[in-house]
Amino acid sequence: MSVLQNVNSPRPMSLKLATRFMAGGVAGAALGFAVMKSATSLHVSPKSMTWADFLAVWIGITYLGIGLATYAISFNRKELARNLEGMEARLPATPSEVRTSRLQSVTLVLAGIMMLLPVFAMGSLSAIPNMRELIFLGIAILFALQTSANVMLWRGADEFLRRLLLLTCAVTFGIGQALLFLRAAAEHLGLVAPVSAWEILTLMMTLYIATGTWLSIRNRPGSSDCLNS
């Protein structure tokens, strides 16, 4: 088969990829169990949690899971290269790619912790004097660290990755502001009950994850590469 024929040949769905999905599912379930176990130990009762709290826990676990997986993969340069380029990547990840990957994992883990903290603070911790203020201070510090890491990622990103991020934000804002406008109008007319900032935030973050996932799947490195096979 010639080079150019190879270039255009479709790549079959790999068994390895399917195994990865399975492993990811099992790891995610284990992480979710561990987080909920921690919540129970802090006397955070599921009965006292709102739908927004459940959503926040799901978002937090998702971010934590992806962040920890990204961090673990960054130690295997060949595996990281396959994640970036596709299953047939020839060159291992460069030190710069490893650094970026670890920085991404830091932002994800911090985001996960920030989403979980307000929910966890509702349990036995809230009975301790000044604990809510201390937790909020902790969240503010984590937020500052995460913002710095995000700025570093933005500065190191190329035109394609910046465009992908901007598109994710634009789609999230477009859909989010439309839904928020309709809800706000209905709320102002007294047709529906008011929503809290926490509820709006969890919905927005869910929308952001969904948009980011959709765009990532559309732009995944899936094309065959004759030179690497």
């Binding site: 970036l84 380029e85 190329d158 394609f160 732009n219």
Partner: peptide, 10 residues
Amino acid sequence: GVSRQAINAI
């Protein structure tokens, strides 16, 4: 001097 993802997307 760009990412692998950029090359793939192009």
